[in-house]
Design a protein around this nucleic acid. Structure first.
Length: 210
DNA sequence: CCTGCGATCGTCT
DNA sequence: GACGATCGCAGGA
């Protein structure tokens, strides 16, 4: 498709609160251009990090360091960080400048560039559904690393997000659940700030039955 | 299905 | 010096 006919989310789409954006992003398409090739996946799982009061957030208590500086930038900025000595995770910054709120992308359903994703993920990853079903996995599959930290998703030629068209995914087609991997966040670990599509087999962690 | 563990290193205390 | 918004594998039920 010619670039001129492709739409992407714009500043006003990102200038909202993280809960609204986390739900809005479900069904949208993350596009990554790397080595002249396009990789794309449908966003099927997100988490909201809701500001300085959120104990699970890197910006808890107003912490502001070189690592999390992107969280304080303009909405539509990518916040990519390195963790556990080997993985990257990608967030989409939202809210106002100097208000550290963001949405973590946790899983994608692969759409385009699947052979490249398989190569980047390595031979140990056999199932297509496992290519991008985790925040570290999707960054590995799409080649998202610290060079993309702080890029502007509304203007970048390397990565952007396209809207969920023609009909945005509604909350009726989403599961709302606790966030993953933040057990030490006290009461904030129980907040229902994760959303995932009921219609994808590429979600990282399913809700426990009760 | 589930739980536990090691890998590996940048970041912050 | 400790820990982490993770992952893949091993082992047991």
């Amino acid at each position: 498709m010619p670039d001129a006919l492709r739409s992407r989310l714009v500043l006003s789409d990102y200038e909202t609160d993280p809960i609204t954006l986390a739900k809005r992003l479900i069904g949208c398409t993350l596009v990554r251009i790397i080595d002249g090739e396009e990789l794309a996946g449908k966003i099927v799982e997100t988490e909201a990090y809701v500001g300085v009061k959120d104990r699970a957030s890197h910006a808890y208590g107003g912490r502001r360091t070189a690592r999390n500086e992107a969280m304080y930038a303009r909405a539509g900025t990518a916040y990519v960080y390195f963790t556990y000595g080997m993985h990257f995770c990608m967030n989409v910054v939202c809210g106002r400048v100097d208000e550290p709120v963001a949405v973590l992308l946790r899983a994608l359903q692969p759409i385009r560039g699947i052979p490249v994703m398989q190569f980047r993920r390595g031979p140990r990853c056999r199932r297509q559904a496992d290519l991008c079903n985790g925040p570290g996995k999707l960054c590995q599959a799409l080649g998202i690393d610290r060079t993309l930290n702080r890029i502007d998703l509304t203007t970048s030629d390397h990565m952007w997000i396209e809207p969920d068209t023609p009909v945005p995914t509604t909350t009726a087609r989403m599961v709302q659940d606790r966030r993953v991997g933040i057990a030490s966040a006290g009461l904030w670990a129980n907040r229902l700030l994760r959303w995932y599509s009921t219609e994808s087999d590429c979600v990282s962690v399913l809700r426990k039955q009760r």
